[in-house]
Amino acid sequence: MSDETPQHDPLEKVIELRLPSKLGYERVAMDTASSLARRMGFAADRIESLKTAISEAVTNAMEHGNQQDAAMKVVVLLTAREDELIVSVADQGRKPLDQDCTTGSPKIEDALERDDKGGWGIWLIRELMDEVEFTTAPSGGNQVRMVIHLEQ
């Protein structure tokens, strides 16, 4: 037996990805996660949802948490379990996430009136993933933990 204390369930498989905070690099996280999800047996439409949720979480981390400073990393942890995939996205938290913006439901009628038509990212993540939780990363940055269940 290994003398190292396992920090997680031995059946879990963890992939860690560290990306520069540069818009466009979220594609790397999307493709890595979809490659894993495909091998776990997720249906194509669930994988599309996963990709959209990850793109939103990673671009948020780049733009808000890390203020688009390319030298700051976004850390994506993909934890594959028997029946679910857990994705955690953490930034280096120069700017803490306003808790209010993690719960709202934007309305297109309002967006049409506003100059800023954005603000859909976190809402989309909530709509598309089975479980979503906003926390603080061990590094002190913002972290979003998203779970998608494998339905048989």
């Binding site: 992939i15 990805l17 540069k22 690099y25 390319a70």
Partner: peptide, 15 residues
């Protein structure tokens, strides 16, 4: 260095 990426995987065939 700023635009590098790092990936860590389980050492298991398939990954």
């Amino acid at each position: 260095i700023q635009t590098g990426m790092e990936l860590s995987l389980p050492s298991e065939l398939g990954f």
